[in-house]
């Protein structure tokens, strides 16, 4: 009887697994067929990628020749796939603006790869267009989270059927923060402490290099940009960042606005600009970009 029980249970699980695998394959095929990466804005010459610093700092109305594809909590690992597909499909883009902030190179960025929340949020958006090598890497970081995220892959792929802008409508974009850093928060300097683990994160740095090499291979000029942060935002890995820049990207323009003078009312928190801050910063950035963009 126990054999019968195990056989029937196994058979049931087999059917279940088959249903899931079929859904997964169908979703992948469907989304690959339906996906397009063409941005319907031929005048846009600059593509901006990065994390939430980029998302909330770049105002597309002011920077009218720029496409803001920054995405909250996104490591270069995911941005690489995004930049690759967008640059391939949009040859009019000539410049790649890459958010280059202190938190993107430090070791604490590791959780942006291995944490289940980050994987389940970002991986479904890019998994169908990732290189095998990248998939192997993320699987080796957290196989459990990748397996758990398969349900999200299917759910995400189903959107392919229902939307015409798939998948780039899910790949980030400009955001607006309306709140202001309050006086009480400003005075509480403890909140501004950056207590994460220090050291340079090798994987994120490797993918930043990959993004830059890929852009260069497509005759796209990479430009690094650091968005403004509040004076109380303690940055304790500045040496690391400068070291990384000097040793790897010294040939690239680096638009460093870290200390760009802005009032407290321009910040949503210590390292994110709100609507007012984004407008002021975008004007300043536009002026700087004019020197680079032909």
């Amino acid at each position: 009887m126990i054999q019968k029980f195990l056989l029937r249970t196994g058979f049931f699980l087999g059917i279940l697994t088959s249903i899931i695998v079929v859904c997964l394959l169908a979703g992948t095929i469907l989304s690959k067929q339906r996906a397009h990466f063409k941005v319907t804005a031929p005048h846009k010459k600059i593509l901006a990628i990065g994390n939430s610093h980029v998302t909330y700092a770049l105002n597309e109305k002011i920077l009218d020749n720029l496409l803001n594809f920054g995405s909250d909590g996104e490591a270069y690992f995911y941005s690489y796939t995004k930049a690759k597909k967008l640059l391939e499909a949009n040859p009019e883009i000539r410049y790649l603006l890459i958010g280059f902030s202190n938190n993107m190179i430090r070791n604490s960025i590791q959780r942006w790869y291995e944490d289940e929340t980050f994987i389940s949020h970002h991986l479904p958006k890019y998994v169908n267009w990732m290189d095998v090598e990248d998939l192997k890497l993320i699987y080796s970081e957290n196989p459990k989270a990748v397996i758990m995220a398969t349900a999200k892959f299917i759910a995400f792929d189903l959107k392919a059927v229902s939307t015409g802008k798939f998948p780039i409508n899910e790949w980030g974009g400009p955001g607006i923060l309306t709140n202001q850093l309050s006086d009480s928060v400003v005075k509480n300097t403890n909140n501004a402490m950056n207590l994460y683990e220090t050291g340079i994160h090798s994987v994120n740095l490797r993918y930043l290099k990959k993004i830059i090499e890929m852009a260069k291979s497509k005759n796209v000029q990479p430009v690094l940009v650091r968005t403004p942060v509040h004076a109380l935002y303690k940055v304790d890995n500045e040496q690391d960042l400068q070291h990384v820049y000097r040793n790897n990207f010294a040939d690239l323009p680096f638009l460093d606005f870290q200390h760009f003078p802005l009032a407290d009312s321009c910040f949503a928190d210590y390292d994110h600009l709100n609507k007012n801050g984004a407008e002021l910063f975008s004007r300043a950035l536009k002026a700087e970009l004019k020197k680079i963009v032909d």
Partner: peptide, 19 residues
């Protein structure tokens, strides 16, 4: 019967919250 159990399993798989 199995269809019903499959439905519960799939709802767990697709709609399950974070562990």
């Amino acid at each position: 019967r199995w269809g019903f159990y499959c439905l519960i399993c799939l709802s767990i798989y697709f709609f399950g919250g974070r562990e």
